[in-house]
């Protein structure tokens, strides 16, 4: 077979998981601030800073009204244009971003306010400053503290769910994913380059990693797949809002011991043996 024919053959192979990766990374898709404004309108009041070091713009947080109920919203924001993306560090949070998120969660716990997390990140930022300020420690603390947070927590993956940097906002009572989102332990490129020394095999890695919303649903890692809302279809945001509200209502009715017990059990069964 000639090289050209081989190329053509390769093109014909389909990698539906990698198509989902590409869709999740599409720079034209809606970001966390879009979801916040479509779902909560003018009621959102942004709250800044981790009270430790700085305000990480890759993480946006605040309080808004969900119908009659105040809720805390924390999202990882990639930015909608080049200027914003640079400002938001392309949605790659530093430790102070995760510490801001935890501060707002603790604040929500104090006032028994439900927490909605919107995840869209390729991963926690891998850089000198992030390491110096304890990226690993910041994520670890969130995992520990979220597990026993005495207020309902719901996470929706609205684009990329990149490894520990996504999980740091996803120790929740339920985790949902948009149909065109992905959630993985490592990027398919990273996986392919480590395992096969060839990052161009990312499409194959995406299949092997089982990272689409459907995969995660089948693996019982998420509770729900959400239809991808279109920017011009407000009804879809309204129905998402209703779904979020019902889930919070259900979990607000539980006493906090029961709530955190269920949250622990949710994660406890993943990979449990016997």
């Amino acid at each position: 077979m000639s090289n050209a024919a081989k190329e053509k053959d390769k093109e014909k192979e389909s990698f539906p998981a990698y198509e989902k990766v590409m869709a999740a990374r599409d720079s034209k898709k809606l970001t966390a601030v879009d979801y916040i404004s479509k779902m909560f309108g003018d009621s959102f009041i942004e709250l800044h800073g981790d009270r430790r070091f700085s305000d990480d713009k890759a993480v946006v947080g605040g309080i808004a009204m969900l119908y009659d109920t105040p809720v805390t919203i924390i999202g990882i924001e990639k930015g909608r244009n080049t200027k914003e993306r640079v400002e938001r560090n392309f949605g790659q949070a530093h430790p102070e971003g995760y510490r801001k998120a935890l501060r707002l969660m603790k604040q929500a716990e104090k006032f028994h306010r439900p927490v909605l997390c919107l995840v869209d990140t390729s991963g926690a930022y891998p850089g000198i400053g992030a390491e110096e300020r304890g990226q690993g420690q910041a994520i670890a603390e969130n995992l520990m503290e979220m597990m026993t947070l005495k207020t309902p927590v719901l996470t929706i993956v609205i684009g990329e769910g990149g490894s520990g940097g996504a999980l740091a906002l996803a120790v929740a009572d339920e985790v949902w994913m948009l149909e065109n989102s992905v959630y993985s332990v490592i990027s398919p490129e990273g996986c392919a380059s480590i395992l096969w020394k060839d990052s161009s095999k990312a499409p194959q890695a995406a299949e092997a990693l089982r990272m689409t919303a459907q995969d995660l649903f089948d693996l019982r890692v998420i509770e729900r797949i959400i239809r991808q809302p279109r920017a011009d279809d407000q009804a879809m945001f309204e129905s998402l809002k209703l779904l979020v509200s019902r889930t919070f209502e259900k979990n607000l009715a539980l006493d906090t011991a029961e709530l955190t017990e269920q949250r622990y059990a949710r994660f406890r069964r993943i990979g449990a043996i016997g």
Partner: peptide, 25 residues
């Protein structure tokens, strides 16, 4: 985390952290 076990490996970070938290509490 072990990438050959995909998302299920990642979830072990949350699971172990939960167990540590209960021990700590």
């Amino acid at each position: 985390a072990r990438m050959q076990e995909g998302i299920l490996s990642l979830m072990q970070m949350a699971k172990t952290s939960g167990a540590v938290k209960r021990h700590s509490d």
